[in-house]
């Protein structure tokens, strides 16, 4: 068995085990309603986490995604309110904007040789500031097309709903997996993450790849913003604060190394589902005060990371002993 798959399998095992524990305590958690909810509620996080996976595999980081989601929501809401454009046209304009924004950050990172942490931090401030400038108040979206989007779902047995945005998240993950493992761009991303100097010597177009990675992250952040606006049918400039940290946590739980060069997009999906599972469990329990909720989320995050490291370490040892 490929040893690179170890972190991914470890995460999968932990997820299934955790779900089993939750099911034992709250049988209702295995209903299709809850499963459908898991996909819908975390759709925007999942989409943005795919972009974050690519960025982290390349050895970088993107702190701007939460603010770009908020900006996207406000942009869509304000455009729909003030112009007569159809939502699809607004979506297209938005995606072009966020992709260019990401590409600009990637350009600054590569051509000016500045650390991604700081460049994307400045990007985060810029995007959030632009969202404030567009609209301080929360702006509702009332276009009929949105109602069509919100009412599209597939009714699963057991009254659960696989909504459009939940399905979109799954599609984005599939596309991400294809992109990472079946295209040259994906290979270049892994190469850059493994070592920039080595990649350059091998002939990988580092500059183009870097710009492409952050452009992809910007594109997916815009897409996540569209999904979030469908989820909340509003644009709010104070929304999604700190989502970038949730995305990073999901990517790390999914087995991707922050140093870059290794990781799987599929692992991120499981990471997102694990975080959704933690929240669902806490709500089902219903007795945790605000502060105990924070402490428990922190502790569970810790437990998952340690478990995953432990599983990888012990199977590594067993392999070394057996080989």
């Amino acid at each position: 068995m490929n040893s690179r798959l170890l972190p991914l399998l470890a995460t999968l095992v932990i997820f299934l085990a955790a779900y089993a524990v939750c099911y034992a305590q709250y049988p209702a958690m295995l209903s299709t309603r809850v499963i459908g909810n898991l996909l819908t509620d975390n759709a925007f996080l999942g989409i943005v986490a795919v972009g974050m996976t690519f960025v982290i595999i390349s050895g970088g980081i993107d702190l701007s995604v939460g603010s770009v989601i908020a900006f996207s929501g406000v942009f869509i809401a304000v455009m729909l309110r003030d112009t007569g454009l159809h939502p699809l046209a607004v979506f297209a304009a938005l995606l072009v904007l966020t992709t260019l924004f990401g590409a600009a950050m990637g350009g600054v990172i590569h051509y000016l040789e500045m650390p991604p942490f700081i460049v994307t931090l400045a990007g985060m401030f810029l995007a959030r500031g632009m969202a404030y400038v567009l609209s301080i108040d929360s702006v509702p979206i009332t276009h009929e097309f949105y109602e069509v989007l919100q009412r599209s779902y597939w009714l699963m047995p057991g009254k659960g709903r696989l909504t459009l945005i939940g399905g979109m998240m799954l599609v984005v993950f599939l596309a991400g997996i294809m992109l990472a493992h079946r295209t040259r761009f994906g290979t270049n991303v892994y190469a850059v993450g493994g070592g920039v100097q080595t990649a350059r010597l091998m002939g990988v177009p580092v500059g183009r790849t870097t710009v492409g990675i952050y452009a992809l992250s910007g594109f997916l952040a815009g897409l996540a913003g569209i999904v979030f606006s469908i989820y909340t049918s509003a644009g709010y400039s104070l929304a999604t604060v700190g989502v970038e940290l949730d995305a990073i946590a999901a990517v790390v739980i999914g087995g991707t190394l922050l140093t870059g060069g290794s990781g799987f997009v599929a692992g991120t999906l499981i990471g997102v589902l694990i975080m959704g599972l933690i929240q669902t469990y806490i709500i089902f329990d219903g007795t945790l005060s605000s502060w105990w909720t924070k402490i428990l989320i922190g502790m569970l995050l810790f437990a998952f990371i340690v478990l995953q490291k432990g599983l990888v370490w012990t199977s590594g040892k067993r392999r070394a002993a057996g080989g």
Partner: peptide
């Protein structure tokens, strides 16, 4: 019997909580 859900000041967490309450019945 009150089921308490803290949203950490995020709307998406409140929507999540409501949908979970509905699923719990």
């Amino acid at each position: 019997d009150l089921k308490f859900a803290d949203a950490q000041q995020k709307q998406e967490n409140q929507i999540k909580a409501l949908r979970s309450f509905i699923a719990q019945g």
